[in-house]
Simulated scan of single mutants.
Amino acid sequence: MFRDDDAEIKERLQFKSADKVGAFYQESLQYPSLNVRGLGAGWVGAEARTIVPASATAELDLRLVPESDGNRLKKLVKDFIRNQGFYITDTTPTKEERLKYDKIIMVTEGSVTNAFRTDLTNPYGSHIVNILKNKFADEVVQIRIMGGTVPIAPFVNELKVPAFLVPLVNPDNNQHSPNENLKIGQIAYGIQTLYALLSTPIEP
């Protein structure tokens, strides 16, 4: 498994200590995680107003690994919220509910996309690694599991077939951020990569 340079990550992202999940970043990806990806309430900065906002919203997502059950984890999150004294509803609270409960929260849930993982020693994976190593004359970074939501997981898990991701973007592409980018040179790199992968026969 590839091990990141933790000191370099801290320097680039400008933080002192990472969350203590795993000994290093790649190891931490082997565990499920809960991410607070958005918070919203009231107004700030030049738009600040002297009022109490009517509501506050939090967007959460749960990143899964093959060993985790997404529905069970969603239940655990709701159980935690309930244990903080909240009454949970899945619709806008009614007047009667607002008058009855001190703490109310509306929880709406998304669907579950299960994770998949292909063994690093899989022969098809070794085939890909050898092609890339020969094509670019450099070591190939292999990551046991990545952190993205990939909609092919149901097919992979149901058909029991190996699957591999070969990212073609520049490392600083800021994926999903407002300043997401793709350097022009990566397009040429991607063409070379895909041509090499598709034109090299698999050894029997």
Rank of each mutant, 00 (worst) to 15 (best):
E97N: 10
M146I: 11
Y25E: 13
T92E: 14
A163M: 09
W43L: 12
D138R: 06
A48P: 01
V166C: 05
L182E: 07
I131T: 03
T92G: 00
E158Q: 01
V140G: 01
K183H: 14
V44M: 05
P178T: 13
I131S: 01
P178C: 11
E8S: 09
V107E: 12
L73N: 05
Q175K: 01
E8D: 15
E27N: 03
L99P: 00
N130M: 04
T92L: 07
A23S: 13
Q186W: 01
L194S: 03
R98M: 11
I152T: 08
D172L: 08
V156R: 01
T89K: 09
A54T: 12
D4Q: 15
V166T: 07
A196T: 03
A54R: 11
S68A: 15
T200M: 03
T200P: 07
I191G: 00
W43D: 13
A163C: 15
L120Q: 08
A153Q: 05
P151A: 05
D138L: 05
P32V: 06
V52D: 02
E59R: 14
V77M: 02
T57M: 11
K100L: 04
L197T: 02
R63Y: 06
V169T: 03
T113A: 08
N173H: 15
N173C: 15
L73K: 01
H176M: 06
N174P: 00
K75R: 10
R82I: 01
G185V: 03
L34T: 05
I131D: 07
Y25W: 12
W43A: 14
N122E: 12
V161A: 05
I191D: 04
W43S: 12
R12V: 07
K10R: 14
N174G: 00
D90Q: 11
I145H: 10
R117C: 10
M106E: 14
A153T: 15
Q14G: 03
W43Y: 14
P167N: 01
L60Y: 11
N71Y: 12
K16W: 02
K100R: 10
Y124V: 06
P32N: 12
T57Y: 00
N71T: 12
L13D: 03
G147K: 12
D19N: 09
L120I: 12
S126D: 05
I184L: 10
I104T: 14
N173A: 15
N130E: 14
F164M: 06
T193A: 05
I9R: 15
A153L: 08
I128E: 05
S55R: 07
P66W: 05
D138Q: 06
E139L: 05
V156L: 02
D5R: 11
S17E: 12
I184G: 00
T108H: 02
H127N: 00
I81M: 07
S68H: 06
I202M: 13
E97G: 08
P162C: 03
N181Y: 05
A54V: 04
Y31H: 12
I105E: 02
S17V: 10
P53L: 02
E97A: 13
V169C: 04
L99T: 06
P32L: 13
F80D: 08
